[in-house]
């Protein structure tokens, strides 16, 4: 009898050893995976490190030297950077290192707070608008009203709002934050609304609805977690925008007022002396603004890639 190759060479696998459906890869949460993916991106890591360094120095920088940001020393004006004064001194003899990091506090505070207010307002308005759209006459009306408000605010230039606010309120950090927030949240609201509208018709949301899940639960379990990525990406771009807006306003003289320092006011102060060769007066605050922008954008890009599963390797 001729034996077929089948009989000789192939034997059925012992059923006890069959492990067809086991997934070997450890199961990681979405955030852990995102983190691991960001870590692989060198530019994003550089951005993150820079960002942490800037925040660290903003917190501890002024305490590292014996001079406070407002302490004047008229015998020591316009000194170039030295071992004594790392970033030099300005025309009143104030230590530039101390002032730079003091200014960083103002800039970062405005950036984070304005972005946070944008986020809260944007998520609430955008979320309600997106969720209510298409839910009967009342829902459509709510969506319509909110979106018209958004459109009106979108059309107002924020510079105008700032100048008008300056008339009513005292110039300063609070005014800038209010001015930036009034016009800033509409972008976030639009993005969130669009995202919710799209997610709402996803089949898993329909399934949840069919399975009797309540509206608040659908929002918190299905809609918000899936907009998180977009929210975070947006934050990494609104924070630097707000910081830059503050620097710009302060540079125009509409922002933080003396004796407070911010990167914007410092660059403004330096303009008058740039021709006399005191490069350090302009260089350090301008460099810090540039570094912060770069750090946020590099990190934001990295997160964006990490959160997009199609871009993941």
């Amino acid at each position: 009898m001729v034996k077929t190759a089948n009989d000789q060479l192939f034997r059925p696998l012992d059923p006890a050893k069959q492990q067809t459906d086991v997934i070997e890869r450890p199961s990681l949460g979405i955030w852990k995976e995102t983190f691991l993916s960001v870590i692989k991106n060198k530019l994003a890591v550089l951005g993150l490190v820079l960002l942490l360094a800037i925040i660290f120095l903003a917190l501890l920088g002024p305490a590292m030297v014996p001079y406070s940001a407002s302490q004047q020393s008229l015998t020591n004006t316009n000194q170039p950077p030295s071992a004594e004064h790392w970033f030099g001194t300005d025309d009143l003899g104030r230590d530039m290192w101390s002032r730079t990091w003091q200014g960083a506090r103002v800039s970062l505070t405005i950036g984070f707070v304005a972005a946070f207010v944008d986020l809260i307002l944007g998520v609430i308005v955008g979320g309600v608008s997106g969720y209510m759209a298409g839910r009967g006459k009342l829902g459509d009306r709510v969506d319509n009203v909110l979106m018209r408000i958004v459109e009106v605010l979108y059309g107002i230039p924020y510079l105008l709002v700032v100048i008008l606010l300056m008339v009513i309120m005292e110039p300063g950090i609070t005014t800038i934050i209010i001015a930036l927030s009034i016009t800033g949240w509409v972008g976030m609201a639009r993005i969130i609304r669009g995202q919710i509208l799209q997610l709402k018709s996803q089949e898993y949301v329909l399934a949840a609805e069919k399975l009797g899940t309540s509206h608040p639960k659908i929002i918190t379990r299905h809609l918000l977690p899936n907009t998180m990525g977009i929210i975070i990406i947006n934050l990494t771009f609104t924070i630097p925008t707000a910081i830059f807006a503050e620097a710009f306003l302060s540079f125009l003289g509409l922002g933080v007022q003396a004796p407070f320092a911010s990167w914007g006011t410092m660059t403004n102060d330096a303009l008058g002396v740039i021709l006399s060769g005191q490069w350090w007066r302009l260089f350090f605050p301008a460099f810090m603004i540039a570094m912060t922008m770069f750090a946020f954008n590099a990190f934001g890009d990295g997160i964006q890639d990490a959160l997009d599963p199609r871009a993941r390797k």
């Binding site: 996803q202 089949e203 069919k210």
Partner: peptide, 22 residues
Amino acid sequence: RNVNKEMQIIFQDPHASLNPRM
């Protein structure tokens, strides 16, 4: 609500019908 519970649906696209975050 009880009737709703007894009628369920299975969707076409198995990629879109499961919440990726859960």
